[in-house]
Design a binder for these strands. Structure first.
Length: 818
DNA sequence: GGCTCCCGGGG
DNA sequence: GTGTACGGGAGCC
């Protein structure tokens, strides 16, 4: 009997069944039951655009080719009226039997000289399906058909008809967060092939669990003991099986937890067959590793945070601890991870705190997922791809996916991705970016910041900037020319016909404005906030996309015109602010930093209002914030400051730090600590002298060898075998030494070293921490190459030179270093 | 000054 | 899976 069911698709994939590509849509019904819907009525195709008046259909239909004992053939062709780069074309839609035949056939015909071009041959079949069927994941779809028997963990329905029903979205997907802890002896690299997983935690709705394979006495109710790692892995599978999550989430799980589990499972010949079709967890190593499960959404919340939220963060590091602090105002539990393996081996009775730690990481991951899910879901709805895809896409891919979807609706054929030579050529092209009014390094107070809201999107929209509207014949000599500085760059844009890109971006901006209106009128709504934020994110990515070498809709001329108009508008604000008696401190692309210079905040507001009256179209200058104090720092010692390097103090007493390289792990702890402290003392306490004294104390401490050895250890990880290194850096020199002593070192091994006094090269002075005594480290090196560089520029703006840090210490011989 | 190497996240 | 996707800084040469 035919069924009619409404469901929310979560994942889409396809499988070849009886020589046919069958789409599998996995999702949840309105009755909250898992379901798999099959659609075998969608055929792979691509476009061919013939040269004027060329008849190629017949020739195309005859294509048949043998490859790896299988035949790839064109099944049919049809003429389709489409638009391509602003022109009407009679394209040929070429169908093939299987998705994989598409690239094979394209390869054969790509050089036919009767063809203008071959297009849309590299669009994933599953994505093509969603676009063409107008199906949006996570929103309600109606399907008719019959249940069939097929190897599957969820009921399978073969569709006779399937259509988007409404834009109602799945409300509460079932989320399960997990995290593993692995055995990792102190100082050793993470080595999945060597070291076992010792515990796994899960956290979900009314569900918390920690499995581990060492027994000890505990009151923790969520702790469950298993016999060994093998059983631990079985529990991992079982838990997922029983909990039946829609979303399985982890922190960096794409590249750590999942691959680790997979590697360990292979040892025991355990299949991680958690796919809803009984398929195995798939780990694909590439530029970045991805881990996927059929029918089940694996969400690496870390990846989403880095890729799409990164820009708006105050922190520049994305450790779980940092992101949890930033987004949840919570921290990881403080345990000594280095000691975990020792306790595991010697005193299991003390494992309790590690179980708590393990669970807490899952809790934080779960909360991050919950918190960001609205943002992810909104992007899914706007772009029309499953969570899994959205999770792993960067800005340009988000834009491109959106454009591909819209291109279908507007009957536009998408331009092709560039190939090697094209990419190389594009990479060599440069263009002028935003205008930077370089700050005079210094310490300032009462700073007001204004910025253009979505500067580039509003410019692209109001100036109709796009690949098909540029330098049109119909508006030659009539349309305004973009204010580029280079006389050879003359770009104007059609004033008669709206282009595809500006049309798309205008729609996004207007949708966002409507939502902002609703938000203003209503109570706070995380969902609307997320929608608004997603629309902004997408719109803001268009400009970068136009200039991105890998883009289909690439146009460096459009990117140039956009920044040219941007410089024009920001110059306008700067000039008028100065005219109105404000002091302009700094400006970068779309923002201006003014000091009140005795004026009131209200006067500044009035000024911005006046600017706004004169702005065209959707453009708007907005108020960004007020800061009681701020420091602007120079990148190179010199009169002018570097862009994007400053620290501000908000009225609430929080530091907003931009552009100070967060000292990374191959820096000593002391360098990092000093930089943090100095900024704090200067901005929060407003006591530069005190900061200077502090650094002097540290320098003195280094000289007198009072700074503990741990704080001067530098960590660097080996990337390859020692013999494969062409250049011998300090960490390689140490690695070679270790090897001579019979210590196993290889890729991933963490080298710790201390720079001691000695010959010129750092590598000759690098020693292992354990062979160095407290007084052996090279104080001058740490002062010169670690501590001073981390704060030098900060002090430079206050009028202090490096020498000032050493004054009254009788260190005349240091003069030679300056 | 160019080339080579490492960083990220995870334990 | 209708595949192949960083960007910036330090130290060596």
């Amino acid at each position: 009997m035919a069924e009619k069911i409404r469901f929310f698709p979560l994942e889409v994939t396809y499988k070849i069944i009886d020589g046919k590509a069958v789409i599998h849509l996995y999702g949840k019904t309105i009755k909250n039951e898992q379901l798999c819907v099959l659609d075998e009525n969608f055929e792979p195709y691509f476009y061919v655009i013939p040269k004027m008046g060329k008849e190629v259909q017949e020739k195309l239909e005859k294509i048949k080719v043998e490859k790896e004992n299988e035949e790839a053939a064109v099944t049919k062709t049809e003429i389709a009226k489409r638009k391509y780069l602003g022109k009407e074309v009679d394209a040929v839609k070429v169908y093939t039997k299987l998705p994989k035949d598409v690239p094979i056939i394209r390869e054969i015909i790509k050089d036919w000289n009767v063809l203008e071009s071959v297009n849309e041959y590299d669009i994933q079949f599953r994505r093509r399906y969603l676009i063409d069927k107008g199906i949006t994941p996570l929103t309600l779809v109606e399907v008719e058909g019959d249940f069939v028997t097929q190897k599957s963990k969820v009921p399978v329905l073969k569709a006779t008809s399937i259509k988007q029903y409404s834009d109602d979205a799945l409300e509460n997907p079932r989320i399960l967060a997990f995290d593993i802890e692995t055995y990792s002896p102190l100082g050793k690299a993470i080595a999945p092939e060597k070291n076992p997983i010792i515990m796994i935690s899960f956290y979900g709705e009314k569900f918390e669990k920690v499995f581990l394979w060492k027994k000890f006495k505990t009151d923790l109710k969520y702790v469950e003991f298993v016999d060994g790692e093998e059983e631990l892995i079985e529990k991992f599978k079982e838990t997922i099986e029983h909990y039946r999550p829609d979303i399985l989430t982890g922190y960096f799980s794409d590249e750590f937890d999942m691959p680790y589990i997979k590697t360990r499972a292979e040892r025991y010949k355990i299949k991680i067959d958690i796919g809803l079709d009984h398929s195995e967890l798939k780990v694909k190593h590439g530029r970045t590793t991805v881990s996927s499960i059929r029918g089940l959404t694996h969400l690496d919340i870390f990846k989403f945070i880095v890729k799409t939220m990164g820009g708006s963060f105050d922190t520049e590091a994305y450790s779980l601890n940092n992101t949890a602090k930033e987004l949840l105002n919570e921290k990881k539990l403080d345990v000594d991870l280095d000691g975990m393996s020792v306790i595991w081996d010697k005193t299991p009775a003390q494992l309790g705190e590690f179980c708590e730690y393990n669970l807490h990481d899952s809790v934080l991951t779960y909360k991050l997922c919950k918190k960001l899910l609205p943002n992810i879901m909104e992007l899914v709805k706007i772009i029309g791809l499953p969570i899994y895809d959205i999770n792993r896409m960067g800005f340009s891919q988000l834009v491109e996916s959106y454009l591909l979807k819209q291109a279908y609706n507007f009957k536009e054929i998408a331009p092709n991705k560039p190939h090697h030579d094209e990419i190389r050529q594009r990479r060599m092209q440069t263009y002028k970016g935003g205008f930077v009014y370089e700050p005079k390094p210094g310490l300032y107070s009462d700073i007001v910041v204004f910025d253009y809201r979505s500067l580039y999107p509003t410019i692209i929209s109001s100036h109709n900037i796009g690949p098909e509207t540029i330098n049109c014949d119909c508006c030659r000599e009539k349309a305004k020319v973009a204010p580029t500085e280079n006389k050879k760059e003359i770009y104007w844009f059609c004033t008669k016909k709206k282009g595809f890109i500006p049309l798309m971006i205008e729609d996004l901006i207007k949708r966002r404005m409507r939502i902002k209106e609703i938000i203003k009128e209503r109570k706070p709504s995380p969902l609307l906030d997320a929608r608004e934020h997603s629309l902004k994110l997408l719109a803001n990515s268009f400009y970068g996309y136009l200039g991105f070498f890998g883009a289909r809709w690439y146009s460096i001329e459009c990117a140039r015109a956009t920044t040219a108009w941007g410089r024009f508008y920001i110059h306008n604000v700067i000039n008028k602010a100065e005219g109105a008696g404000f002091k302009v401190l700094y400006s970068d692309t779309d923002s201006v930093f003014l000091t009140l210079d005795g004026k009131t905040k209200e006067a500044a507001d009035k000024f911005a209002e006046k600017i706004n009256l004169e702005l065209p179209g959707l453009m708007e200058l907005g108020y960004e914030g007020f800061y009681t104090r701020g420091i602007f720092v120079s990148a190179k010692a010199g009169e002018f400051g570097a862009k994007k390097k400053y620290a501000l103090l908000t009225e609430e007493g929080a530091l907003k730090i931009r552009g100070f390289e967060t000292v990374r792990r191959n820096w000593s702890f002391i360098a990092k600590e000093v930089q943090e402290q100095v900024l704090n003392i200067i901005l929060k306490e407003n006591k530069p002298e005190k900061a200077l004294d502090y650094v002097k104390q540290i320098v003195k401490g280094l000289k007198n060898k009072k700074i503990p050895l741990e704080k001067v250890i530098i960590h660097t990880q080996l990337q390859k075998e020692t013999q494969d290194y062409a250049a011998i850096g300090p960490h390689v020199a140490i690695a070679k030494k270790l090897k001579e002593r019979g210590i196993e070192v290889g890729p991933g091994f963490m080298i710790k070293y201390v720079v001691t006094k000695g010959e010129k090269k750092i590598r000759d002075k690098a020693k292992l921490p354990e062979e160095v005594k407290q007084e052996d480290y090279d104080a001058d090196y740490y002062i010169e190459n670690q501590v001073i560089p981390s704060v030098e520029k900060i002090f430079a703006v206050l009028g202090y030179k490096k020498e000032d840090i050493f004054e009254k210490q009788g260190q005349k011989q240091l003069g030679k270093f300056f």
